[in-house]
């Protein structure tokens, strides 16, 4: 059954859109990543104009992440204090990132540098996470009675001032750490046009030392706000949010996120990390391949930016 989308200005199959939303919602419920990396190219693939795909994708991710966040919250897996500090850093980072984006845009042809650094970043984070979590997974479980390992390693990062207690995460660390992390992710998100959950989730696990399950819920908390802000900005400035398209996607997404949260809660931390690292590596390969391979069509067509 086809439906006409008023802002995308084309018609698409309803069931295809609901299914697409469900798949993205499931990923976000399990891993705490937004899924914009997958949703935007898929929408473009079925013919939605890229600008509308980005704006509408953000709108759909609001629904998916709030649905998943509530499901994790109910299981007590959201650290609101940590989420708030990350978010504060993220807001400042998004503004700075936006300014950097404008500057790069003026210089011209610099987005390629950003894309390359993103590929390198994803590749190294994914590889590191894969090796670490696979190591844990393959190791025999410790005999009962042996003293448990420390929750996380201490390094110079833990010597920073403004220490703050995050009860839920059982952490006593400098507030500068999540603040700075939020800032970097926010800036990257604004430059790359993606939510940044892919970098945030591993960073929270390895840099902050948070438990994996808690990371998923807390990341969704942060993503809800980021995508809500992005939706508003795209709608107000670019008029590229198609609510009809978004509603069809989110019908699938909110259900997918609930199922995903259940599945995620039944996985062990290291299992989750192995799967996530595989997805991160997959995205990295896909992005990298897109940069290196000779495209079939060298030309692309888009409405001229009004001058």
């Amino acid at each position: 059954m086809q439906i006409y989308l008023p802002i995308a200005e084309m018609s698409l199959n309803i069931y295809l859109l609901v299914g697409l939303g469900g798949m993205i919602g499931f990923l976000s419920g399990v891993f705490g990543v937004g899924g914009g990396f997958l949703l935007t190219p898929l929408l473009v693939f079925v013919g939605v104009p890229p600008a509308v795909a980005v704006g509408t994708g953000a709108n759909e991710l609001v629904a998916a992440s709030v649905s998943g966040m509530i499901a994790h919250w109910r299981r007590g897996n959201v650290d609101f204090a940590m989420g708030a500090v990350l978010l504060a850093g993220g807001v400042v980072g998004a503004f700075v990132g936006g300014a950097i984006f404008t500057m790069l845009y003026r210089i011209g042809h610099s987005e390629i540098l950003v894309e390359l650094s993103y590929v390198v970043l994803l590749g190294s984070v994914g590889a590191m996470m894969f090796v670490e979590s696979l190591g844990v997974l393959l190791k025999r479980p410790p005999k009962p009675g042996t003293p448990s390992r420390k929750l996380h390693e201490h390094n110079w990062l833990h010597g920073l001032p403004f220490k703050m207690r995050f009860r839920k995460s059982k952490l006593y660390i400098s507030a500068l750490l999540p603040l700075g992390l939020g800032f970097v992710i926010g800036a990257l998100a604004a430059i790359m046009g993606v939510g940044g959950g892919f970098l945030l989730v591993p960073a929270m696990i390895y840099l902050l030392g948070m438990p994996t399950l808690l990371v998923v819920g807390t990341s969704l908390f942060q993503i809800t706000f980021v995508t809500a802000a992005a939706t508003f900005i795209h709608a107000a400035a670019n008029k590229t949010v198609d609510v009809v398209l978004a509603m069809l996607l989110l019908v699938g997404a909110v259900v997918g996120a609930q199922i995903g949260a259940r599945v995620g809660a039944n996985l062990k931390g290291e299992q989750l990390r192995v799967l996530l690292s595989l997805i991160v590596l997959g995205v990295c390969l896909q992005l990298g391949f897109g940069l290196v391979a000779r495209p079939g069509e060298l030309f692309s067509l888009s409405p001229a930016v009004p001058t």
């Binding site: 709108n59 759909e60 609001v62 629904a63 998916a64 992440s65 709030v66 649905s67 966040m69 509530i70 499901a71 109910r74 809800t224 809500a228 939706t231 508003f232 709608a235 949010v241 609510v243 978004a246 509603m247 989110l250 019908v251 909110v254 259900v255 996120a257 609930q258």
Partner: peptide
């Protein structure tokens, strides 16, 4: 658009 999305997520939960 944001409110609809938040509401839908909440209803599903």
């Amino acid at each position: 658009a944001v409110l609809i999305a938040l509401f839908a997520g909440w209803i599903a939960a």
